[in-house]
Design a binder for these strands. Structure first.
Length: 217
DNA sequence: TGCCAGGCCGGGT
DNA sequence: ACCCGGCATGGC
């Protein structure tokens, strides 16, 4: 697994993720980008910035209707307005609105708490933990799954947790490493692994990451 | 023009 | 424990 990272890093270098300015902005982006391209999210974030809504307090106070209108470009906008409000409600109730206090919570505990918030599933929880909080949690996404399956390191039956354990078992618990690796996976997935091409022999990554024949861990 | 994007929820088996 | 329909916009 580590060799995959080394190959990708040597080829593409540091990715400078996550593309946001504050931990709260990372969290907003993590929710808005669910099943949505980042370009659609950027417009929504800019609207929130312009309206001075990129703080937990402001999201808590604004009406759901106005919030939904401002994030319209990110898709599922009514759902996502509810989700943003659910998160800041959780933050206020459990941590008096303090992200610093929230991120002081042990990783396992905080992960469970985040998963209990409406609109926060495994990938969003892990993105928040890693990219906003610096906790060493590997973020598994559709690209990571696709790449693992193409290289016979995973199968469709494997769950999100299976894949996360695979990465975390194979790598040292290092937030900077997880950060960079996930970013490289998204970068290469976006540019080189198209959904309609089921085998890696069809994708430009074959020169960097040849397909493997046997399923191993 | 249709397909896709850095998922998740709720209800059903 | 899975499986599925719904959620919605903008880019290629």
């Amino acid at each position: 697994m580590r060799e995959y990272f080394d190959v990708l890093f040597a080829a593409y270098g540091p990715q400078h993720w996550w593309p946001s300015r504050t931990p709260f902005e990372v969290i907003v982006g993590a929710i808005l980008t669910q099943n949505t391209s980042w370009t659609n999210v950027e417009l929504a974030i800019e609207n929130l910035r312009r309206e001075k809504l990129l703080t937990p307090g402001a999201i808590g106070s604004v009406s759901a209707a106005r919030l939904a209108r401002l994030i319209r470009s990110s898709g599922y906008f009514r759902q996502k307005a509810k989700k943003l409000k659910a998160f800041v409600r959780f933050l206020r109730a459990e941590y008096r609105g303090s992200l610093a206090a929230m991120f002081r919570t042990p990783t396992r505990t905080l992960r469970e708490q985040l998963l209990a918030v409406h609109g926060i599933g495994p990938e969003t929880a892990d993105s928040i933990l890693l990219y906003a909080g610096g906790h060493p949690v590997f973020v598994v996404d559709a690209y990571a799954r696709r790449i693992l399956e193409r290289h016979n390191l995973a199968e469709p039956k494997h769950s999100y947790e299976d894949l996360r354990r695979l990465f975390e078992r194979s790598l040292s618990a290092d937030a900077a490493l997880y950060n960079e690796f996930h970013a490289l996976i998204v970068h290469t997935g976006k540019h080189y692994c198209r959904a309609r091409e089921p085998r890696c022999s069809e994708c430009a990554l074959k020169h960097l990451l040849p397909e493997r024949s046997a399923a191993t861990q």
